[in-house]
Design a protein around this nucleic acid. Structure first.
Lengths: 340, 340
DNA sequence: CGATCAGTCGCAATCGATTGCAACAACGCG
DNA sequence: CGCGTTGTTGCAATCGATTGCGACTGATCG
């Protein structure tokens, strides 16, 4: 078992000082050393199978070329695209993502953040934003590390955020339903602790209020899950006053709502139309294929990463909010209002 | 902007040597220092907001408490559960996962591996196994770093693998179809470069051959995707000789097959039954709900992590193969054979 | 009363790089 | 021929921890 080979070993073989090896191997300083020497050093490095030690380098340069990515739950289908987008931007630039799931638990969030802080990540991308007090965010603020929030924000305005254009999405969805003749529409909102959910609900209310003759009701699902959506829809159906169209808080909620309707022999979209939000993977494979608001999750992730990198380079970074354009995609879960 | 606080700063405030700070803060060595002193040190550390530098520690101890996780594509729905399982095991033990996607490209694989090697990860979990030559695996072998393969293997027997019990899954699925009276069954296999796919196809062939009166055909889909599944099913239908049941290479292929059948006015399961493989998230929400082989992806990830950790601790690690039990779950996509 | 021992703590080397500074040679120029 | 340049390389400090070893202090014991 050959001991790990270090820069000194390479230096010895190439008959130079390790400082020269360091310069020869770094493209940025390569021109400070003789071309012949560079060749010799490279050959020696290859021959010995030299692998630079990123920890030693990081210690010296105080930069780890890593970023911490903290999300609630990777199994929630909106996060894989976001993470993928982040990674797609980071990887070619030499950065690596350190991933942590928190299940939205304050304790776990805090300890994950702390653990990544110890690893001296150069910055964070946080997808765990919630409204109200959040220990991790306080810690994040005092840590002074560059941070970008993605999708969900805390609305405290401390950090840059990149998210989808919620209002435009709701507007497009409602316009579509109005055009189909729907007037009794209920919004199956997610819990109000998320900025996205809240923004959608507010948009829903204000747009419905501005539209003469529409009756826009809001019902809250307990969580952004299919089960919660099903339960909420069950409650609505139980009241006996079923709307002709439902705008779900997200696709998962929509999925649950569809299940509930089917269980009560309501046909989608013949009896009631439903539109989702996010256009998560497989939304097109629901039955019926879900009409929904396409949010460019991967691009959102990439943009967040881009923003973070510029924040790392720049230090003085404004807490901008970039909202990415969404696109309404109509599929098979909406239809003209049922002639009563 | 207060400069980063180091152990020396804490030492100064607590009026001790930094060596003592180190011992006081490490639970493993805490009993070597006076209880009063420990208190003083901890107070000082808290007061200064001291955050230990993992790079410095890692440099000294040559262990980074990180593991590299290399997967083809996080957006493939079987990977989030695996990654989640890995993380669930790692996190409480102080390890962090470094994630890299490769899209199955040799170049990208290699450079991702190299990049993580430089970061001195303590081990790797590889989900990118393919049959045949694979540059990254050669590099992995010579690197001498602990490695565990997950789900897919390279079949070279170099590394431990944890995967689902493919044969048992195929057996259960076929038994189910046999019981429903199906005799003309085709296996919509994935490409033969994956160990999983290959194992399933082999099991399919051998089990069908052993069952009197069944006609087991195998058709290869070009990839493990819905589109490839759809295309392959289209080809089958075009031949005019449609089987009464199909066993798909995985759930995505099954999804595509369902789409193709629907497009040709074939009803599932009345006209043809279909069973998937993996029980990926939302398989139950297909229409019809997919009968499939449940593979405990999250547990597989966790077990791989467990194996890796023991390999890191132990060094001399046998390349065992652990195959996790699968569970057949019947839902709505299978039915008794159509009376011809 | 001196030796031994346990309990604490400090000293200094070490991990593997990066980088400002200085040394040195060769060279051109006035 | 002396001096400033330019190009190349070496020296040594430094990043922030960990840890083997030795020193010191009291206490215990024969």
């Amino acid at each position: 078992m050959p001991k790990r080979v270090t820069m000194d070993d390479v230096a010895k073989l190439a008959e130079v000082h390790k400082a020269t090896v360091s310069r020869a191997l770094d493209p940025r300083t390569r021109d400070q050393v003789n071309a012949e020497t560079v060749k010799r050093v490279k050959r020696a490095a290859r021959q010995l199978g030299y692998v630079p030690n990123a920890m030693a380098r990081g210690l010296r340069t105080s930069s780890s070329m890593t970023v911490g990515v903290i999300i609630p739950d990777l199994m929630n289908p909106i996060f894989p695209p976001i993470v993928r987008g982040i990674e797609r931007l980071l990887q070619p630039r030499g950065y690596t993502a350190l991933l942590a799931n928190t299940d939205g638990d304050d304790e776990v969030e805090l300890s994950a953040f702390e653990s990544l802080l110890q690893r001296r990540v150069d910055g964070f991308i946080l997808a765990t934003g919630r409204l109200g007090e959040q220990p991790m965010l306080r810690r994040a603020r005092e840590s002074g590390v560059p941070i970008v929030m993605v999708n969900r924000t805390s609305e405290t305005g401390d950090f840059p955020v990149v998210t989808g254009d919620q209002r435009a999405g709701v507007e497009a969805a409602l316009r579509h339903l109005f055009d189909l003749g729907h007037r009794r529409i209920t919004h199956l909102a997610g819990p109000p602790m998320f900025s996205t959910t809240k923004a959608r609900a507010e948009a829903f209310r204000s747009i419905c209020a501005a539209e003469p003759g529409v009756d826009g009701d809001v019902v809250e699902a307990a969580a952004l899950t299919a089960d919660a959506g099903e339960a909420a829809m069950d409650r609505i159906i139980a009241t006996g006053a079923c709307p002709t169209a439902v705008l779900a808080g997200n696709d998962l909620v929509a999925l649950g709502a569809i299940r509930a309707m089917r269980a009560h022999d309501l046909r989608v979209p013949e009896d009631v139309s439903i539109v989702g939000f996010n256009d998560m993977p497989f939304a097109a494979d629901f039955s019926p294929a879900l009409t929904t608001v396409h949010v460019p999750l991967q691009e959102i992730g990439a943009e967040a990463a881009r923003l973070l990198l510029s924040g790392i380079a720049d230090a003085a970074q404004q807490p901008v909010t970039v909202s990415m354009p969404v696109e309404f995609v109509v599929r098979a879960s909406t239809a003209p209002v049922h002639p009563a």
